[in-house]
Amino acid sequence: MQSRRSFLKLGATGGALLLGGAFPFESLAGSAIHKLTILHTNDVHSRLEPFPLDGSKYQGEGGVAERTSLINSIRKETEHVLLLDAGDIFQGTPYFNLFKGEPEMKAMSLMGYDAATMGNHDFDAGVEGFAKQLVHANFPILTANYDFTATALEGKTQPYKTFKKGAIKVGVFGLGIELKGLVPDDAYGKTVYLEPIQMANRTAERLKKEEKCDFIICLSHLGYHSNGRKVNDLILAKESENIDLIIGGHTHTFLDEPTLLKNKKQKDVIVNQVGWAGIRLGRLDYEFDSKKSSKLTNAQSVIVRKQTRG
């Protein structure tokens, strides 16, 4: 009995070794595995320091200096990382009241954010207030459905950006929430809100067909669930065509597991959101290969392994 158990154990290990050993052969056959790691935050709300140790719910959690160490250690382990934020960078601590977003932008630049979108609170110091802080940001602000013509942000944002991560081409674009009724009129001024689903599909199609992206990410500040609004991330996912991943914000939703949905073409879309205040850093690790069949795998049964609390 004893020896049989040992044998089974050995067998399992041997199997794992065999599986591990299979990769180099696949590489030689031209179907190498390409890895991409997505790290993300949303609704950090000027929370630069951890929550004070005052007995409140999130005491001791968050903090950009702590997040920086974590991100740096992940970057050491894995080569191809995209670090993204889904908006509401501003408002929530005295840092914003006093410095109007300057340390928030500097902190994100220091952490090496690749892109962010705008949340409603990013209009709290007006379009001008946000525009003024962009000199401290070394990453682009992506928004495909705000028209900033004739505002202080004209020409200072872009609808999307593409990233080459090894052999993988990634397209990232941003979507913002309807501002009327949510943000004071004079804060957003002449900003024109465009219907997000239409703009999303148009932008994603361009990323897929013209930019030839392998993977398309939407940074959304529409909110996870209805929240009394017409559009949200769940609706966007179902109505979308070429988006693979929606990194959401606005509703401060702590998703322990991302939500897996089918898009208009019955392909998988993942929606994720990590609460607020920089309490959590979200992480998604993707593997890509050049096998056509894997496209079907993606549509039918994406393997979502149980997340581990970190």
Partner: peptide, 24 residues
């Protein structure tokens, strides 16, 4: 062109279990 073959997900709760980065 490349295609997604698999993915995994996780999250980290940020706290002082991670040392504060000195440059930050």
């Amino acid at each position: 062109p490349l295609f997604i073959s698999s993915h995994t997900n996780q999250f980290y709760t940020i706290s002082n279990r991670y040392a504060a980065d000195s440059s930050m």
